[in-house]
Amino acid sequence: MKTIPVETTINGDSAEFLCHADESLLDVLRDRLGMTGSKEGCGTGDCGACSVMLNGRVMCSCLVLGVETQGAEIETIEGMAKGEELHPLQRVFLEEAALQCGVCTPGILVAAKALLEKNPDPTDTEVRYWLAGNLCRCTGYDKIIKAVQTAAAEMRSA
């Protein structure tokens, strides 16, 4: 199969890669670019572990083809901290133990950040529905919802 050249921007840097027509963006990120922060929990759009921002919208990267991202702006978990400085969501997730195994965490952080950019003051129910596409099997979600709210409050007063 022939490979196709694609030019994108990932976490603010221009990124060029070659991929096959049937390769998902998730496979491109993980296998071709070595960005293994996005996880594959299902490959069918049901778990959210592969969540990335694509042109400002949260997407399951397992459902997007690499070749579809020509010219796109992509943000992944690897771009969330600025150097040593964690994003407030990342820091509060640690402070409030909102992760156990942590494999859902990259996807949940990407999705939660997108929520707070749209809606800086969500209700618990809004957080729960926004994150309904992100499965976590370890925590029962309780500490995740609380951590998102703590980070939201912090970001509002910043």
Partner: peptide
């Protein structure tokens, strides 16, 4: 830190 920044290495 590794787990909130995507650096932690899991099975795959």
């Amino acid at each position: 830190i590794d787990k909130v920044t995507g650096k932690a290495a899991y099975g795959a």
